[in-house]
Amino acid sequence: DLWPEIQSTLGDDCLIAHNASFDLGVLMACLESHDHPVPDMQYSCTRAIARRTWPQQPRFGLKPLSDWLGIRFRHHDALEDSIACAKIALAAAEDSGASTLEALETKLSLSRGSAGAWGKKGPTARRASTRRKSSPRRASTRTSEVAIAGSTMATATMSNTSVSTAPPRPCGISDSGVDLQRLMIRADFIRPLEGRKVVFTGVLTKLQREEAEILTSRCGGKCQSSVSRKTDLVVVGELDSRTVNAGRTMSSKEATARQLADEGAAVKIMTEQEFLEMIIAM
């Protein structure tokens, strides 16, 4: 009874589902069983998109991928499954630097799936699959968009003017084993440092300083060069040689933060490890 309204809503837009060949098969079977003609449809699959975007991942189910990306949702609820699917598509677009579904498919060499009264043909790789390395992040004020079922969902506009153009480490893994790629993608959705001002001091051992500053920005925070009463968080690394040679037991930034904390300022001091654990746990 609802199909005419559903079909009108879909129009000629591309359907997106996770393991989409199954969903399209169910939809087509339902239409046939209720004597509705199967219209010509185009579709894409976030499972196939994820396989091309993050080939190093061990599992590509909706729940494992959502867990890895930090997408919280109630599994097997139709609406929440759909939103999670959309966010996986958006994360892949953001990671690939694509602003439309067509651009994402082109970057991944992935064809569009199609279906109709004649049957269906799922999305396929246009050439042999290779283990694609993520593209370097570029400074941008562009909002990444992927059109999904007649509506447009957008990630937060990024404006990172200090992003390095140096190639990322393989799979986003730093020398210390931190999955930097995962943290960056999670940050786009969770933004655990939204509105907070952060100062780094000392020598970081798990992230490069530039990586830490970019991660902070992606998490919604803002890096400061010095500690003030407006500072929310001071992340303390190991003492550098200048501090040690001066005979001090902490950096001047940490000393200022501790003094402000003693005076009642709401500044929190933590180690680099605690900083990473806080972001991962959010």
Rank of each mutant, 00 (worst) to 15 (best):
T155L: 15
H18Q: 02
S228A: 06
S44P: 00
L183G: 00
A98V: 09
T271F: 00
F200K: 06
S99G: 14
R52V: 06
P123A: 03
C171D: 15
A212L: 02
S99K: 14
S174K: 13
R47N: 07
T165G: 12
I280D: 15
D95W: 09
R186T: 10
D240V: 00
L65D: 08
L69C: 03
E5P: 01
L62A: 01
G150T: 02
A29W: 02
E213K: 15
G61F: 10
T256F: 11
D13C: 10
A89E: 07
S114I: 10
V236Q: 04
I280R: 13
E238N: 13
T141P: 09
C45S: 07
V199R: 00
N245V: 01
L180C: 09
G25T: 03
I190F: 04
T205M: 08
A128D: 11
L180P: 05
G97T: 01
E105T: 11
P123V: 07
T53E: 05
T106I: 11
A117S: 14
R196A: 08
I269V: 13
M28L: 10
C223H: 04
M282S: 15
A149Y: 13
T271R: 05
P167I: 01
A281Y: 07
S33C: 07
S251T: 15
D35I: 06
A212N: 05
R186G: 11
H34W: 11
L110M: 05
T165P: 02
D23K: 07
K107T: 12
R138E: 13
S225D: 09
R182F: 06
S134R: 13
T271G: 05
A98I: 06
I83E: 10
L2D: 13
S109V: 08
I148Q: 03
Q7M: 10
A29P: 01
G113E: 05
R229E: 08
R142V: 11
S217Y: 14
R218K: 09
S111L: 10
G122Q: 05
G195S: 11
E263L: 14
R127D: 09
T130Q: 14
I173A: 03
A89V: 06
T130A: 12
K230Y: 00
L10G: 03
